[in-house]
């Protein structure tokens, strides 16, 4: 290959317009002509560097070495050395503790809301203070809302009768006022 052709190809090379074939030819020419034109000397060094670098390979024990490097840098479970060739699994971070904490806080809050002590209702107050005149505690609970003043039905009847008559009298009085009689 003539010097002029090489120069032209180089020019094309810097424009990134050369084909793979032409690049190979350039590299071959530079390696074949160590004592070429001093004008082209810097380019020869460049192509020699490319050639040199492309020959470097990882080597046959590359995989073993990289696995050893990983084993050395990763903390492993005691008694469980990573064997070369063993597939690596992503480390799982277990957030169970955090989730459990969040869940228990939720349950606590909801529980407190649901079980918060209510102010005693009037009927509950009555029930609590009632001296219920019933025979058994179970019966006392079922009718505890209204405590009995009387133990004797006859007395209760008399009281009711009296109260009904009072109500009746007043009711009639009111009706008389309305109708103007």
């Amino acid at each position: 290959m003539e010097k002029a052709t090489v120069k032209a190809l180089l020019e094309k090379y810097w424009q990134a317009e050369t084909t793979v074939e032409e690049e190979r030819a350039l590299a071959a020419w530079f390696s074949d002509n160590p004592d070429a034109d001093p004008e082209l000397e810097p380019y020869r060094a460049l192509f020699a560097y490319f050639d040199e670098e492309s020959r470097i390979s990882p080597g046959e024990d590359f995989e073993v070495r990289i696995l050893q490097a990983i084993t050395a840098s990763q903390p492993l479970q005691p008694g469980e050395p990573l064997q070369p060739g063993q597939p690596l699994r992503p480390i799982r971070h277990f957030h169970g503790g955090l989730i459990a904490a969040a869940a228990s806080v939720c349950i606590l809050v909801i529980g407190l809301f649901l079980l918060r002590p209510e102010p005693p209702s009037p009927s509950a107050v009555v029930a609590k203070n009632a001296i219920v005149s019933t025979d058994t505690p179970a019966a006392a609970l079922s009718v505890a809302v209204i405590k009995d003043t009387y133990n004797d039905p006859q007395q209760a009847l008399t009281a009711i009768r009296h109260a009904l008559l009072v109500a009746s009298v007043h009711l009639n009085e009111g009706r008389k006022q309305i109708t103007g009689k």
Partner: peptide, 21 residues
């Protein structure tokens, strides 16, 4: 029971009750 429950235990008041039982 609903509106005057607080007076049921008030000593100024007297209460007469007849339960459903």
């Amino acid at each position: 029971g609903r509106f005057f429950g607080k007076y049921l235990d008030d000593s100024r008041f007297s209460v007469v009750s007849v339960s459903p039982r």
